[in-house]
């Protein structure tokens, strides 16, 4: 045990010295002016290439959309693993929720949480946000419901089967949009070049396939995180 501690201390010292030595050599903030060619290309041509005002969304759902598909697969795998681990766990029977005051408070803020989540998802291509962030906000709504109203109510409102279906169909929607590029003779996940309408920059229906891809990812992340939470809390406490 003592030896273990000394080993850890030596490792930390070696790591800190090497990391500090390496990072001190990097250019400081004052010297950076974002002149790499790739960055110039994205910042100057992002709006032209994708029709999206939010350049992070443009990178995430157009230039690197294939990576986003892989990322969605990672969430899918995590959700599948967690649901599989707790598949046979019984529903905790005595989850009656919190007091009447908390319930009425959730009644009044719940719709606005949903609205905020949908706004962040659907406006992901023109304002800060996107499918992942909005999906997390949507998932907090179901977490709030299951804490405040109890798991039984949450299960009645949003059946786990419904959430599974929602997640899988959102993944399928993503794939359908992605194959739309191939059907028009372009590449997998092609956006504007595959004939998706560009729209007017800054309006809701713009940026071609970006908005529907955002919506699919938002539904998928929201349903997936809600399922993870539901599966983890539903088993009986020992």
């Amino acid at each position: 045990m003592k030896l273990h501690r000394i080993g850890v201390a030596i490792l930390i010292v070696i790591l800190s010295v090497t990391l500090a030595g390496a990072l001190a050599e990097l250019p400081s903030v004052e010297q950076r002016t974002s002149t790499s060619q790739l960055t110039r290309r994205v910042i100057d041509g992002g709006l032209q290439d994708t029709g999206a005002l939010n350049l992070v969304s443009a990178v995430l759902f157009d230039y690197r959309a294939f990576d986003t598909l892989g990322e969605a697969t990672v969430i899918f795998a995590a959700v599948a693993g967690v649901v599989m681990l707790f598949y046979q766990a019984p529903l905790h029977p005595s989850s009656i929720g919190l007091s009447m005051l908390a319930k009425r408070s959730l009644d009044s803020i719940g719709p606005f949480v949903f609205l905020a989540g949908m706004y962040v998802v659907l406006y992901g291509h023109i304002s800060p946000g996107g499918g992942f962030q909005g999906g997390v906000i949507l998932a907090t709504l179901t977490i709030l419901i299951s804490i405040v109203y109890g798991l039984e109510t949450e299960r009645r409102l949003l059946d786990p089967t419904f959430k599974t279906t929602l997640e899988s169909s959102a993944a399928l929607l993503f794939m359908v949009i992605a194959f739309g590029g191939i059907l028009t003779g372009e590449y997998f996940l092609s956006n504007l070049s595959a004939g998706f309408p560009r729209g007017e920059a800054g309006s809701l229906l713009s940026a071609g396939s970006l908005a529907p891809l955002n919506a699919a990812i938002g539904l998928k992340v929201g349903a997936g995180l809600a399922l993870i939470f539901y599966s983890m809390v539903k088993r009986e406490p020992e």
Partner: peptide
């Protein structure tokens, strides 16, 4: 603008 590429990469990392 700040560089959008690391932000997009880290969004993936957070997920």
């Amino acid at each position: 603008f700040i560089n959008p590429l690391p932000s997009a990469l880290i969004l993936t990392g957070i997920v």
